[in-house]
Design a protein around this nucleic acid. Structure first.
Lengths: 115, 115
DNA sequence: GAAAATATATAGAGCTTCTATATATCTGAG
DNA sequence: CTCAGATATATAGAAGCTCTATATATTTTC
């Protein structure tokens, strides 16, 4: 089971994982679709390299936070749909609180530049 | 000159640099002191490994964002005091706006988990 | 006088992301 | 109908950053 610690040493990793898990909260989606939605919702600010995205999905599945299944309907076009698990939901809700805490402390410090 | 782009691929690096530059906005400080203040102000949440801190300071100095000078008063105890440069201030103010933009978009997406 | 805290520095291991490459299907323009 | 571009997944190797460990030396505290 994944540790819910949001360590500062791998912010990007935790950031990317949080985005993916949040996108899957609504409904199952496949990798390519996840990347597109994150890009759209962030107005082009967050872009996933596919070479980064897929290994993360594999890792999240291995950790039991998401579960992937190859599309049943069309056997030719291979698309793997990922659904967030109950463990994944619990983990992500906890992560949200940790991100809130982290950003609050962060802006408390860097807010100095506006004084 | 340093690019002010806040890329998602190295959030931790940008995060650490922002903390250091913000701490130096008030007055010049030496490395060890910077690490302590960040730890205090974050209530222990952000801790710098010294093996991480010093290389960052060297890099920021090389980029002209900070300027380091060995303490004049006590020649025995070696402490290098870093002051933020005008370029560093400008850079950091820009970074603040970019962090605001990034976190706004981020929480807009991960806020889904609370609905 | 000894231990702990202060203070800086670097080397090497480990992890993550990036770029590049490979493969294959589907869609739309011409 | 053909070809280009978009869709879709995957992995290998390069590059970059942080971590741990180690080294050195001074100052403070007991």
């Amino acid at each position: 089971m994944k540790k819910s610690d949001l360590s500062v040493s791998n912010l990007t990793k935790n950031f990317n994982e949080a985005l993916i898990l949040s996108i899957l909260f609504l409904e199952p989606k496949h990798g390519y679709q996840i990347a597109l939605e994150i890009e759209e919702k962030s107005e082009g600010l967050f872009k996933f390299n596919h070479g980064t995205l897929y290994p993360i999905l594999h890792k999240l599945e291995k950790e039991g936070l998401i579960k992937g299944d190859w599309e049943a309907d069309s056997p030719k076009r291979k698309r793997k749909f990922y659904a967030i698990t109950s463990i994944g939901k619990k983990h992500m809700k906890n992560q949200y609180r940790e991100w809130e805490n982290l950003t609050n402390h962060f802006f408390n410090i860097i807010g100095e530049v506006n004084k």
